[in-house]
Simulated assay, not measured.
Amino acid sequence: MQQDYLIRATALNGQVRAFAANMTGILEELRARHHTTPVATAALGRTLTAGAMMGAMLKGEEKLTIRVKGDGPIGQIVVDANASGEVRGYVDDPSVELPLNAVGKLDVSGAVGREGFIYIIKDLGLKEPYSGSTPIVSGELGEDFTYYFAKSEQTPSAVALGVLVDTDRTVRCSGGFIIQLLPGLSDDEIGELEARLSGLPPVTTLMDEGKSVEEILEVLLDDVVIRDRMELKFRCKCSQERVEQTLLSLGRDEIQGLLEDQGEAEVVCHFCNEKYHFTGEELQGLVEQLS
């Protein structure tokens, strides 16, 4: 799997903050684990990239969860990310197949739906997590996260997210950027940036041409200063021990019922699709623990 990474940058004398990420390898691993169709791969990849960049806005042990709950056939998209560059995610229905949209592209908005909400839950180490939500405005996800930043966090932002899937359904490239405007920019500077954004080809077109995320930011912004480069990695925290604790939390009667009905149990992790098998003897041991 290729090395995925994220950069943090500033421009225009620190009045613009930027993040850009290459997520190609992580998305390909998740595609292979979940057997996602091209449109499901694209929807998951766009949300993963947004999650990784939003995770990079956090500090220390802080983490967040994104839930995209639209009315489309893909169901819910869930992504976890943290300040250390670790991400994981899944879609409810990875088998969704849709025809290409009117411009010949993967119909992400058709899969996600055009009605619903994006929910962001941030664990900042406080007593209660921070939670924000905004309506889905297009289902294409880049516009939806742009709207989230403007309305929920009051930060004018431009979010570009893209996934290019090859003819064999593998991930050819996946990535994106977030540009955030800080107070102090003149109207002329904002107008220039908007013109560059509107004239920029899709981020996956630039990546497929061989441009790095650093070079993409340099096309967009003058005087880019790269502040940090962080490795991104897929990491799921599931394990046999954690799944065992989940089973124990069901209670003695529930486990006894599994034992009597099936004689064994198999638990599949939503995030990584790993399967955890418990024999009848192991289930009996759990029952005895709870007795």
Results as ranks from 00 to 15, higher is better:
91 V>G: 15
194 E>R: 15
46 R>G: 08
234 F>G: 08
7 I>M: 10
50 A>Q: 00
124 L>Q: 11
3 Q>M: 13
16 V>I: 15
60 G>W: 00
214 E>R: 13
58 L>G: 07
230 M>K: 15
34 H>Y: 00
67 R>Q: 06
153 E>M: 12
48 L>K: 05
50 A>G: 03
190 I>V: 10
143 E>H: 12
20 A>T: 03
27 L>H: 03
105 K>C: 08
235 R>E: 15
193 L>Q: 04
97 E>F: 01
284 Q>L: 14
211 K>I: 05
93 D>L: 11
96 V>E: 00
88 R>T: 08
253 D>G: 04
76 Q>S: 13
239 S>A: 12
114 R>V: 03
18 A>C: 09
268 V>Y: 13
265 A>I: 10
214 E>P: 06
250 L>T: 01
167 T>W: 07
57 M>K: 05
81 A>E: 06
267 V>I: 10
76 Q>A: 02
255 I>E: 02
98 L>N: 10
178 I>K: 08
265 A>W: 12
170 T>P: 02
248 L>R: 03
92 D>H: 12
11 A>N: 09
126 L>W: 06
275 K>A: 13
253 D>F: 03
95 S>N: 14
219 V>G: 10
255 I>Y: 05
95 S>I: 06
92 D>W: 06
228 D>W: 03
262 Q>P: 01
175 G>S: 03
176 G>L: 07
275 K>Q: 15
199 G>Y: 12
202 P>F: 05
22 N>F: 05
26 I>V: 03
44 L>N: 00
248 L>S: 08
101 N>H: 07
48 L>H: 02
13 N>S: 15
104 G>S: 01
110 G>S: 03
170 T>C: 05
40 A>K: 04
141 L>Y: 01
100 L>Y: 14
7 I>Q: 02
206 L>C: 11
275 K>N: 09
269 C>H: 07
105 K>W: 15
276 Y>C: 13
8 R>F: 13
33 R>F: 04
217 L>Q: 00
67 R>H: 05
159 V>D: 02
273 N>W: 05
246 T>N: 14
157 S>K: 08
36 T>R: 05
58 L>T: 01
46 R>P: 06
105 K>G: 04
232 L>A: 03
2 Q>T: 14
216 I>D: 06
53 M>C: 00
114 R>G: 10
113 G>Y: 06
187 D>L: 11
51 G>T: 01
8 R>D: 04
43 A>Y: 09
173 C>I: 04
73 P>Q: 04
288 E>H: 02
32 A>N: 02
67 R>T: 01
45 G>P: 03
141 L>A: 12
176 G>I: 01
247 L>V: 09
291 S>G: 09
97 E>W: 04
270 H>K: 08
224 V>N: 07
102 A>V: 11
13 N>F: 10
134 T>S: 15
22 N>G: 07
205 T>W: 09
46 R>C: 01
200 L>Y: 10
131 S>P: 07
143 E>A: 13
192 E>Y: 13
234 F>V: 05
128 E>G: 08
196 R>N: 08
170 T>Q: 12
181 L>D: 02
